[in-house]
Design a protein around this nucleic acid. Structure first.
Length: 415
DNA sequence: TCTGGGGTCCTAGGACCC
DNA sequence: TCTGGGGTCCTAGGACCC
């Protein structure tokens, strides 16, 4: 038996932990650059603010109902998330961290799901103050659907393929199923498959022929036959990217180079964090995708002689890629850098015979990482990253990093 | 005026091998 | 008119997830 734990309105709930006065108020958290609503309190959902709505389209609602608008604070959400996951790992032997706000747990069939679910809800609320929904099911896919019901009803739910639950499955539209997105649900509807029950009772072989192995697996999962096991050990990442939109489009190469240096700096740090090195860099810049005519994507792929996670090397390659593709006629609204072809940095590495002997500066990154871990990322950084960050992101409503920065720590006064 | 960021997996087709 | 059989690896693109 699987359980899916999902934090309710996660980013908003994180903010509410430190701002209890936001309870019962409409609250939204915005994406980077204060662009779109990416987390909404129940009150905000009731106002009709859709997921991903651009702020400028919902301003009238925000104003009319005095909704609280917050910039995203991933430092905070990441920290709360890791607290939640480690608490879950104390409570259950088999935990798969599925996303920042979701985890799958695996249980013995003998466990009383209702008691266990309520216990976990209470425990997490007490430890971190985050409300969660829990769905149990005999497969991951069913646990996901049970979670959907749990969120709607406010109680812990359970699903399996027995007739007892057929009515519940008939009430779930096919697009709500984990792995069935917009395209597939449209296509399935054309085949008269409208609900989870319809897909469950469809012929798996025909589905395989028409839609491939992913949808076939979903059919089996809906029938209670587990095809997607719990992954206890996360595979190493296959790609890492850092990409941002600009607050206002950029036509200045110097600024683009500074931006890509920052992203390269963060990228190299992430690689070292994961004990990985990259041998292929992909650097791109593009104009806005909202002017349908003339969308431009400039890109360069750089294959390195040998894998690296060296900050200076990555920044140099990223900047020369930008110099190379830069076109002064283009207003760049977004640039990014991606590391592909990742290698395990702890393994011995084949050196290239064409690369000159590496100069002995490997300690610089280590010293920089140590300082940045202690005092915050960016405390020590390459000069190419620049000093001012004014031009980069709009974050007009940012909340403090309550749990990860000593300057922002919450003070409690006892009378 | 303004529209997020970071990932994964599968498939088809091409190029190549013996 | 007809042109083998069995593989691997790589890439681009599509679809999905949070």
């Amino acid at each position: 038996m699987f359980a899916l734990i999902d934090c309710n309105n996660f980013f908003v709930s994180c903010e509410r932990v430190f701002r209890p006065e936001l309870e019962n108020k409409p609250v939204i958290v915005l994406s980077s650059n204060d662009g779109c609503a990416i987390s909404r309190s129940n009150e905000a959902k009731l106002l009709g603010i859709p997921m991903g709505a651009p702020l400028f389209e919902i301003r009238h609602l925000v104003k009319a109902y005095n909704a609280e608008v917050l910039s995203c604070n991933f430092e905070l959400y990441g920290d709360i998330s890791s607290r939640i996951m480690s608490i879950l790992q104390q409570q259950c032997e088999k935990v798969e961290v599925y996303s920042v706000d979701e985890a799958f747990l695996e249980y013995d069939d003998s466990v009383d799901w209702q008691t266990e679910g309520e216990r976990l809800q209470k425990h997490l609320m007490q430890c971190v103050g985050i409300p969660i929904s829990i769905g149990f099911g005999v497969t991951k896919t069913l646990a996901k659907l049970a979670n959907l019901q749990a969120k709607a009803s406010g109680v812990v739910c359970y699903l399996d393929a027995s007739t007892k639950y057929h009515d519940a499955l008939k009430a779930i539209t096919v697009n709500k199923i984990w792995g069935i997105g917009a395209k597939l649900s449209k296509s399935l509807r054309q085949q008269a498959i409208y609900t989870a029950y319809d897909l469950m009772t469809a012929n798996a072989k025909d589905i395989r022929k028409e839609y491939g192995i992913i949808v076939e697996r979903i059919v089996h999962e809906l029938n209670g036959q587990s095809c997607i096991p719990l992954t206890l050990i996360q595979d190493p990442k296959k790609s890492i990217q850092i990409t941002r939109s600009f607050a206002t489009p950029v036509k200045d190469m110097a600024i683009l180079k500074q931006a890509v240096a920052r992203y390269g700096f963060r990228l190299a740090y992430k690689l070292r964090e994961n004990s990985q090195k990259t041998q292929t860099l992909w650097v791109y810049g593009r104009n806005t995708k909202f002017e349908s005519s003339n969308t431009v994507l400039h890109q360069r792929t750089i294959i390195l002689d040998e894998p690296t996670n060296d900050t200076a090397t990555i920044i140099q390659h990223a900047q020369s890629a930008v110099e190379d593709f830069f076109d002064p006629k283009i207003s760049y609204s977004k640039i990014g850098i991606m590391a592909l072809d990742l290698h395990d940095a702890t393994l011995p590495q084949q050196k290239s015979i064409f690369t000159p002997k590496a100069n002995d500066k490997k300690d610089i990154d280590k010293v920089m990482d140590d300082l940045n871990k202690r005092f915050g990322l960016g405390t020590v950084r390459p000069l190419s990253c620049g000093e001012s960050i004014d031009w980069m992101n709009k974050r007009d409503h940012k909340t403090p990093a309550y749990t990860t920065n000593w300057q922002n720590i919450v003070q409690v006064k006892a009378k």
